[in-house]
Structures are given as C-alpha cells and as structure tokens.
C-alpha cells in the first residue's frame, strides 16, 4: 500500500504546530497503524530528521497509552478498538490519512502527537479509589454482590483512561471517563461509604481542570475503545444529585 500521511508536528506545548505531509510506500495491509508509523519513523531517522512522536506502550489495547485522531475519529475508523489495534487493511491504497493529537485544553501537547493526560490522574486522585486498607485478599463471596452489579462494575472498570471520550466530544468533556470510575465504585459495597464525597470531589476537579460540559451527544460512547456506556453518565448525574440533596459532605 502506498499512502499519504498528513501529520501534526509541534516542537513543544508553546511552539506553533503545523501539518507535514509524508509519503509511505509498500505498507503491508497486515501492519498495525502504529507499525506503519514506526516504518515512517525509520525513514525519517535514516534521513536524519526528527521522528514523529506518538504515545504507545502495550500495543494490545489494554494500557490506554496510544491515542490518535485519525481522519476525524479518535482511534480511527474501527469501533471499540484502540489505535494500536487498528490495521492498515481498513484503509485503501492511495489514501490520504490525516493524523492529529487529542485536542482539549486540559490535554496540552507535549510534542507532535503526544499529549499530557495528567488531568485524568488528578481527577482520580480526588476520590477514584477506596481509602480503607483492605488487608489480604478476601474470601470469594465473603461480600455478597449481585451478579448484575458485579458485571456492570466490571464493564465500567474496563476504562483504560485513553482520553478518546474527551477527544471525541465536541465540548472536550470528560464525563464518560469520570462517570466510569464513579459508577464502578458506586455499584460495589466497598465504594458505597465514600460515594457522596467521591462524586462531588471528582466532578469539582473535572470542572476546575477545564473540561467542557456534557451535552448528551454521545460521541464519547461511540468512540470509546472499551465501549463504556452512557448509562454511566446518567448514574453519575444520579449520584451527584443524591449527594447534593442527601449527603452532608
């Protein structure tokens, strides 16, 4: 496959960025998207120019490090996969592919396609955990949890924090990310005691960091590689209202 790539290049957070056009040739359709970028970078290094920076780690869709905005969609044209799981067979020979970094004020660009997602960590630090020391591994079924709740909590816990929801949202809202963590813990008995404090603190932090407001467009749900559902956002709204009305915290 021969492809034309238009890639966003930016020296650092302050520098002015621009699109650079590159040609790559003889790309195998079985290549992953990141491998294709590796091939491009080999060529660039050979020519003694700077390789294109992009985030990646596990390359099997579980770490949440990779994330590119490809032709108008976070993680590219496939549903429910991360960029590393996207393969070149999804494109046609001769295609032009435009690659941009996540665009959101709370995600400043570090270099080229790499963005700083520390904002997510800061939100988690506000309460995305259970504070009691749990000791050793408890016996199975020592705490009775309905299967349905366990499943829903597990689905919410599948969030890898890649930031595709923020990148996809027209308002750069982090509601899906925050709601996944809030839901996961609100559904389980271990998370219940701190639920009211948690949801208020995490929402406050999310607002403070400059994420936008949810307008129920559900682009987040459509682009989430782990297919986190928007029902989590509804649950967070519920939790938030209950906390404001019932809780003293």
């Amino acid at each position: 496959m021969n492809l034309t790539l238009k890639i966003w290049r930016q020296e650092n957070a302050r520098a002015k960025g621009r699109f650079e056009t590159y040609k790559v040739e003889n790309i195998s359709p079985d290549c992953s998207f990141l491998e294709m970028l590796d091939i491009l970078n080999e060529q660039l290094v050979d020519k003694l120019s700077h390789p294109v920076c992009f985030d990646n780690d596990c390359r099997e869709g579980i770490c949440g490090m990779c994330g590119l905005y490809i032709n108008g969609r976070p993680h590219g044209p496939d549903d429910g996969v991360t960029t590393c799981q996207l393969h070149m067979r999804r494109f046609k020979d001769g295609d032009t592919i435009v690659i941009e970094p996540w665009r959101a004020r709370p995600f400043p660009i570090i270099r080229d396609l790499v963005v700083d997602r520390t904002a997510f960590d800061k939100i988690i630090q506000e309460g995305g955990y259970v504070s009691v020391t749990t000791g050793g591994v408890p016996d199975g079924n020592a705490i009775p949890i309905p299967k349905k709740n366990a499943d829903e909590a597990m689905d919410a816990a599948a969030c890898i924090g890649c930031g595709a929801c923020v990148a996809a949202c027209k308002n750069a809202s982090a509601m899906l990310f925050v709601s996944a963590k809030v839901s996961q813990l609100a559904l389980l008995p271990q998370g219940k005691p701190e639920a009211a404090r948690r949801v208020q603190a995490m929402v406050a932090k999310m607002d403070e960091l400059g994420f936008g407001n949810c307008t129920n467009t559900y682009a987040c749900e459509a682009e989430c590689p782990k297919q986190i559902k928007r029902s989590n956002i509804a649950r967070m709204n519920r939790e938030f209202m209950c906390a404001k009305v019932c809780s003293e915290e």
Binding site: N71, G72, P106, N171, G210, E223
Partner: peptide, 17 residues
C-alpha cells in the same frame, strides 16, 4: 465548552452522534 477546545481539529468529526 468552546473554551475547553481552543484548537479545533482540522478534519471535522465523523463520529455518529
């Protein structure tokens, strides 16, 4: 919401909403 994304994407979103 506009302030949350100061630099817009070059390619308009193709996500189903």
């Amino acid at each position: 919401n506009r302030k949350a994304r100061p630099v817009r994407y070059a390619v308009p979103s193709k996500t189903k909403t």
